[in-house]
């Protein structure tokens, strides 16, 4: 390992290069994998990689070209497998679809090569543990209210993977991680929502304790699929168009119009389901004062996302008094940061 020492609970040691504290956070997302570590100067270092890969035929020319372009790849049989963001870019160039190790927030049962590929990406992001058994908190989705999702297998799989890499692996709910990361100002009371690639995770928290967690099986991928269907383009292309930057309040052209329509529909669907779930739950906390809602995740990065969210929110009678709706300070890093908070606290979480 390159980092020679670390610091924990105030015990400082010297280190070549960046000094950092023990504990790592890992956001295991359908679209992106994000790892976060805490530096001794109070900042954090984040590494992000797209959770995707693409196979191309292995020949000397391709291999040489990929090496020259510094594109990460592995050789598997007669195929070159390009990992991460580069696979997404290549897929768009060749008009192909990327292969995705995860679907709807969980490890994909349809992708046979998914597990070894996601492991390679995670190894790149996390590196080796600073000491044997270093804490690594990773995000898992909550049970879904609109589709079957076997979280036990998914969680067990990543625990096993991280253990085999030398970490003490612990799972934390994705929405809960958002609360840890973004709602310190309200004593970790409020509603954290993560708009990921595969699903939306919601957690209602009271003073760090999750009172209600659930997920909804639509999010960024659902938008991409529908936009691709109506425009007659590959899904990767729709993802590219969406991530290129769309102002949801003022879409420009037919493609952006389609994206904005599905964004609004997604937000409506999510809010309606959140409201219904809150109203049907018997163990909801009764907040005496209004609480904040914070939105995070890559899907929430679209321009005017919060404006549209607020528009749709105003149209309904929400069962919980809400003090404000805001976007996470770093939407893409939010879950990983929350996992890192949990890891830094250690077993006390």
């Amino acid at each position: 390992m390159t980092e020679t020492s670390v610091q924990q609970h105030g015990q400082s040691t010297a280190e070549i290069g960046t000094e950092r504290l023990l504990g790592k956070g890992l956001d295991v997302g359908t679209a992106n994998l994000v790892a976060a570590v805490q530096n001794t100067d109070g900042s954090i270092t984040v590494k992000l990689e797209r959770n995707a890969f693409l196979d191309v035929k292995a020949d000397v020319y391709s291999k040489a070209m990929l090496t020259k372009l510094k594109v990460p790849y592995v050789v598997r049989g007669e195929q070159l497998i390009v990992l991460g963001e580069a696979s997404f870019e290549l897929a768009n160039v060749f008009g192909r679809e990327t292969r995705r190790p995860m679907r709807d927030g969980l490890i994909s049962p349809n992708e046979v090569d998914g597990l070894p590929m996601i492991r390679l990406i995670i190894e790149r992001l996390l590196g080796e543990p600073a000491q044997p058994g270093e804490n690594c908190y990773f995000s898992v989705p909550a049970p879904s209210i609109d589709r079957d999702n076997n979280i036990i297998y998914h969680q067990g799989l990543f625990e096993g993977m991280l253990r085999s890499m030398g970490y003490t692996a612990r799972a934390i709910n994705e929405g809960h991680a958002v609360v840890f990361s973004e709602l310190a100002e309200s004593d970790f009371s409020g509603i954290g929502i993560s708009f990921g690639g595969g699903m939306v995770n919601i957690c209602v928290c009271f003073k760090t304790i999750p009172a209600l967690s659930f997920s909804i099986g639509r999010s960024g991928d659902w938008i991409d699929k529908n936009v691709a269907d109506v425009l007659g383009i590959p899904k990767s292309r729709a993802t590219f168009l969406k991530e290129r930057g769309v102002d949801l309040a003022a879409p420009n052209g037919r493609e952006e119009e389609a994206i904005a329509i599905y964004y609004r529909n997604l937000i409506q669907y999510v809010l309606t389901n959140i409201k219904a779930r809150f109203e049907s739950s018997s163990n909801m906390p009764v907040f005496q004062s209004p609480v904040p809602i914070v939105c995070s995740g890559g899907t929430a990065l679209a321009k005017s996302f919060i404006t549209v969210f607020q528009d749709e929110f105003k149209k309904m009678k929400f069962p919980i008094p809400v003090s404000g709706i805001s976007l996470a300070s770093e939407p893409l890093n939010s879950v990983a940061k929350g996992c890192l908070v949990a890891a830094a606290l250690g077993d006390a979480v």
Binding site: A36, Q38, G42, S43, I44, T45, V46, K47, L48, E49, L66, T67, K70, P72, Y73, V74, V75, R76, L83, P116, L120, R124, L125, F180, S181, A184, S329, E330, N333, K337, L340, V341, A344, L345
Partner: peptide
């Protein structure tokens, strides 16, 4: 696997701290 992963570094970014939350 034969790969070039060891020769490539993942891009790192600095993020805002979590000390306040902790």
């Amino acid at each position: 696997f034969e790969s070039n992963l060891n020769t490539l570094e993942v891009k790192e970014r600095q993020g805002s701290g979590i000390r306040g939350a902790l």
